[in-house]
């Protein structure tokens, strides 16, 4: 089966779409099913679990930022709902 998302580290709570994902797609992922809740473009991130506002976003096994809103599983994770923890005037 064509690989639709890549989880770069087992620690990650997001995966990267390697094809355009459509709302309603069902991903077979790590022995479980994950429903895609909105369209997500190639290269963009999808939440693998329910993420709470303030929670660290983990990709490559490293912290890449923090959630600014609650992000339920299967949603697009990007600049509208996460922010950098570094060099930011809002810190």
């Amino acid at each position: 089966m064509e690989q639709k998302v890549i989880q770069l580290s087992k620690k990650d709570n997001v995966a990267v779409a390697v094809t355009n994902l459509h709302k309603g797609d069902i991903l077979q992922f790590d022995g479980r099913k994950l429903q895609v809740e909105e369209n997500i473009d190639f290269g963009h991130k999808i939440s693998l679990t329910d993420l709470k506002a303030g929670q660290d976003i983990i990709k490559y096994g490293e912290v890449i930022g923090t959630a600014t809103h609650d992000i339920p599983a299967g949603h697009h994770v990007h600049i509208h709902n996460i922010k950098s923890l570094r060099a930011s005037k809002n810190d």
């Binding site: 990267v16 779409a17 473009d41 190639f42 290269g43 963009h44 991130k45 976003i57 990709k59 490559y60 490293e62 912290v63 890449i64 930022g65 994770v77 990007h78 600049i79 996460i82 922010k83 950098s84 923890l85 570094r86 060099a87 930011s88 005037k89 809002n90």
Partner: peptide
């Protein structure tokens, strides 16, 4: 200033990169 928009730049963001940490790693 925020680095966002300068680094990552708009084409990085369009390509799925959300933060400087993500880009740096």
């Amino acid at each position: 200033v925020d680095l966002i928009g300068t680094n990552p730049v708009p084409d990085n963001i369009k390509g799925g990169i959300s933060t400087i940490e993500e880009k740096s790693i």
